[in-house]
Amino acid sequence: MNDKQEVTFTVNGEKVSVDVVPRELLVHTLRERLNLTGTHIGCDSSHCGACTVDFNGRSVKACTVLTVQAQDAHIVTVEGLAGPSGLHPVQEGFQQEHGLQCGFCTPGMLMRAYRFLQENPNPTEDQVRTGMAGNLCRCTGYQNIVKAVQYAANKLSARSV
C-alpha cells in the first residue's frame, strides 16, 4: 500500500522520473520534488484553479490528479511559459494590463489563459469569462484579467499572421 512506484513524465520539455506512493498529488510532486513552486495550492479542492497546469494539452487542476496518473504525460507549468525571447504573450498581457494584485492566483490564470487561447484564439469578452471560469481571483474583480487575456489574444494572433 505504501509501496513507491516510479512515474515518468515530461515537465516543460524535460523528462523526469519520480518515486511516489499512490496517494501523492501531482501538485505536491511538482512543488516539493521538482521545485516547481510556481504552481500554487489554493483551495486544495479543485475549485480555485491556482494549481492549474497543462496536462496532455488540456488544463487540469493539479490538486486533484494523482502523480501516478501522470505516467507518460506531457506537463507544462508556469515555469515553462517564458522563452529565450522573453515573456510569453499571456505573461506580458498580465503585466501590461495589471491583471494581478497579490499574484497568488496568477500562475493558474496564466496556465489556463495559455491553453484557452489555443482552444479559442479570438474570443469575445464573454468567452474569455467562461473560458477562465475555473480560476478564482480575490483581488482584481477580474476586469483586468479579462483585458490581459484579450491583450494576449491580440498579440498571439498578430504573431501568427
Binding site: S46, G49, V60, K61, A133, G134
Partner: peptide, 9 residues
C-alpha cells in the same frame, strides 16, 4: 457542469 478544467477530467 463544473468549470473548464474539471470538465477535462
Amino acid at each position: 457542469i463544473a468549470d473548464p478544467q474539471v470538465r477535462n477530467r
